[in-house]
Structures are given as C-alpha cells and as structure tokens.
Computed example of a mutant assay.
Amino acid sequence: MNAPMIDTADEITPAWVGAALGAVPGSVHVTPVGFGQIGSCLRVALTGTGLPASVLVKLPTADAGTRGMLAGAYRSEVRFYRELEPTVAVDVPACHLATDVTDDGRFTLVLEDLAPAEQGDQLLGGTPQQVLGAAENLAGLHGPRWCDPALLDLGWITLQDADGADLLAEVYPSAVGAFLDITGPLMTAEAAATVRATLPLVRDWSLARAERFGIVHGDYRLDNLMFSPDPAVPVKAVDWQTLSLGLPAKDLAYLVATSLDPGARREHERSIVAAYHARLVEHGVTDHSLEECFEDYRFAMLQGILVSVFGCAYGARTDRGDRMFAVMVERTAAAVRDLGTLDLV
C-alpha cells in the first residue's frame, strides 16, 4: 500500500486508512496506547468490510529535537519490517505500512493490532511457560540468519567494534553511578556489588565471542512481548528499535534473567535453553551444540545489567521505570552470581 507519511492523529482519516489498507472504512476512531515517551502509538478502530476491526499506528514523538535524535532507532524498526522480517521466522505483528524515515525522524508504521493479546509485565515477572514460549519465538529471529555473512553488509546494523567497546568502557562508569544513585534504596547491597563488579569487564565482554553472531533484538523482555491465549501463536515480539548484530544468546539471557524470579529461573533455565536450542536446530543451525548454547547463555548474562543501567541512567524517569530497572538488575545480578558469569569474561 502507498499511504503518505503523517504526523498527527488528526490525519488518520478514512481516506488515509483506505490508502494504507486498500479499503476505505466507514468510520475511524483513534485512541492513544501507552505512554509515548519516545513516540506515539495509536489504536485505530475501523468499520467496514474487508478491514480488520482495528490497527495500530506508530508515529514519532512530536518534539522535533528529540525526534531527530531518535531517527536511528525509528529507522531500525522500519527497516526490520521492510527488510529483515520476511527473512526470519519470529512471530511479530503484521505490518501494513512502513514508510521511509526522514533525517528529522518522521515516519509512519501501521501494524496489526494484537488485541486481545496482553503485554507482559516486567515488574511482576513472567511464568516459566511464558518465558519458554518467548524463547522458542526468539529462536525464529536468530536461527534463519545465524552467522549469515550477508548481515555484515547491511551497514545499518553492525557488530561491536573496538571503537564502540572503548566508548562503552568510557561512559559505563558514569551510567553505573547514576543508576545506583537512583535505585540504591530499591536493591540489595549484594546486587549493587555485582553491578560494580562488571565495571572492569564490559569492554572485553562486548567484543567477545564475535564468531557467533545474528540479529539481536536488544530489548527482548516482557514489556515488549504480547501474550495470546492462542496456542498456535502464544507470543509476538514488538518494538524493534534497538537492533544490532551480536551474540544471539544476549537476547536469550536477557529474557530469562529479567523475567523470572531467581528460584524459578534456577529451576527452569536449562529446559528453556534446551527448548530454544531445539528450535535453532529446526531453523537450520547445525554447528552450535546445546552445551555451547548454555555456555553462551551464562556468558551473556551481563546484557541484562548493561541494558538496565543505561535505560535507567539516561531514559525518561518514572516511578515505575525506577522500580522496573531495579527489579531487572536484582534478578539478573542473581543469575550472574549463580552462573559464574564474571569468571567467563
């Protein structure tokens, strides 16, 4: 479809929807979804034949300065749906329209509305069954393009290099300081000590195991997963703005550690990793043993700490956000200690 790019909810008219979906609705009703910290998401209810009951429209933030800074993130999501999604097997919302992203960050996405599927809750955590389904879905992202050299030629997503690792090591200490100032009252001293213990390791960790690479979602966690009662498609992944190339197990470790309380993780992590690995094999990965997969999972545990530290230190602050990042790090720090992750770097 060839609908024009729009900037505001007022531009979502029957004629525009017709250009986007191929059939003009009798009416449209637009309501906001979520909090819109880095953009806006709008649910558009439709009437008429040949149309879904509703769709979601994603637009950039209205603030021009912020919008420009986020253009790279917006571009990653658009290019995922346009270029990568057809080549992988991860379950995601169907994309009806993905426009170009302008240099100042303007774009428009029209996606399948996944209702009545429900978003996961990072604070509450997930059930082992939810995490198992999410891990199996994740293998559909990693497996089909596992170590595909063509990914290295894309240019808009890349592997970590020495310059990036140096920058990470430079900015990480201040991010840790800000994170601990914010979350200090919300975390145990043991978790805080684990975070500090990562400080001398992040550069080497970020460059290690580059011989195994794939498409990394970068924020594959409960808040970015939609869970459905449909057993055929129990989970779909959203928010593709943090893509990179890297060790695939970073997504897996991040998912499991941030989603499950330590007791549940200890009980179920081996079976979850085994299920993920089995799906990798189904998707054609033949040179990656289950033992190696679990070792990568152990090694990759720092992902949950790094993403949470930077998200908390530099993201827009909310009470829920502060508590969420503290919980994510508390859970992940326990996994780092249990699995001896720091000894593997």
Rank of each mutant, 00 (worst) to 15 (best):
159 L>S: 10
145 R>G: 02
132 L>H: 11
151 L>R: 12
148 D>P: 12
162 A>I: 13
135 A>I: 03
140 G>M: 00
144 P>I: 06
153 D>N: 09
163 D>N: 06
134 A>M: 02
149 P>G: 09
138 L>K: 01
133 G>M: 10
150 A>S: 15
143 G>L: 11
131 V>N: 10
162 A>M: 13
150 A>Q: 14
135 A>L: 09
131 V>L: 14
145 R>D: 08
155 G>R: 07
148 D>F: 14
162 A>S: 15
144 P>H: 08
155 G>H: 07
161 D>A: 00
146 W>T: 00
164 G>Y: 13
139 A>N: 04
139 A>E: 03
140 G>E: 01
147 C>T: 15
147 C>Y: 12
157 I>T: 08
158 T>D: 15
165 A>M: 07
152 L>V: 05
150 A>F: 13
136 E>D: 03
142 H>T: 02
139 A>G: 05
160 Q>H: 14
164 G>D: 12
147 C>H: 14
146 W>F: 13
152 L>D: 05
146 W>P: 00
164 G>S: 12
164 G>R: 14
138 L>I: 08
136 E>M: 07
134 A>P: 00
138 L>N: 03
156 W>F: 00
153 D>R: 10
138 L>W: 04
152 L>A: 03
153 D>S: 10
139 A>I: 04
145 R>A: 09
159 L>T: 11
141 L>R: 01
134 A>H: 02
164 G>P: 13
